[in-house]
Amino acid sequence: MKKIQSTIFSLLGIVVLVLNLNGCAFKLPSQISVHSAKEFVALTTDRVPLKLVRFQSRTLSSNDPVILLVTSPHTNASFWSLDGSVDLPRYLAKRGWDVWAFSFRGTSQSKTREEPLFDDYVTKDLPAVIAAIQKKTGKKKIAALGHGFGATALLSYLEKESDQHISQAVVLAPPAQYLLPLPDFFFLPLESDLVRPLFFNQTNISSDVQSRFSILAEEKMPTALIRLFKTFSETGGLGLDLSSLSAPLLMVSGKKDNFAPTEGLLAIYEIVGSKNKHFREFGSNNFYQINYDHHDLVLSSFAKKEVYPYIFEWLEANKND
């Protein structure tokens, strides 16, 4: 009797083990990964090595326009290509763009000993990366696209440097400005579990991409961002002044986004000095399939059909300005 029991238990144990392993295997990225692209290292002035990834079409020519993708410091460069279906760098590379992505200091791909400040991202990391790309490609000016806090850093960079090195900029949902009064969740700690669903809404993102995001792309929330978020709740925003900017600018917001709400973005957009500027809200009022949330703009399966083509067409149309 005991023998039968023990065999049943051991069999069950094996089944559970196999199922578990299966689950892990399912979660691990198997076919596609950023590593198939070429990797470089850019050194900042204070000698922090930043990981750069280059995606290019097979028939690369020196005329290909160059674009830099800037992701939030709480994610790394893998954020852009988590799945074959949602892969903005390859989408652009296939259509003739020379695409570069990088990881900010403090992430697992660009390690540093010191705790970075938000100013380090803007005044040290971005200039170093842009200089490295300029050296590698021989281009004087490059295009830039940012998402989330990466877009906030890009906007601050544009405020400081104007368009010396940037030919055109796309900012997707930068948390930077809010119209007061702020909603309740601003007064919760950014690293708490209560806030996470608000910027990582799971309804529109496939479970595969979700698990890849948390395993591959997500980093520890840097104190710099937590501090920045606190500043928002005290002052209502960074008060960016882009009135001296003249490069073409596309500002994109998600209708459902609480992290970078449309009305706050419009406040920045209104004072942008560029003659060539566009604002696009991704939601039902522009007849899109869904009301986009913060990460939906890049990671949802709808983004490939609606957001990527819009960005690509805008980039193409404003290439030579």
Binding site: F185, L198, P261, L266
Partner: peptide, 28 residues
């Protein structure tokens, strides 16, 4: 009436006692 359009009333009115409330998941 998008939140921005409602905020326009809230910010412009000179009422001494005024309140604005957004109904969405951001406010729980």
């Amino acid at each position: 009436a998008a939140p921005g359009a409602v905020l326009a009333v809230y910010h412009q009115a000179l009422s001494p006692d005024k309140t604005y409330r957004l109904f969405g998941v951001a406010n729980g």
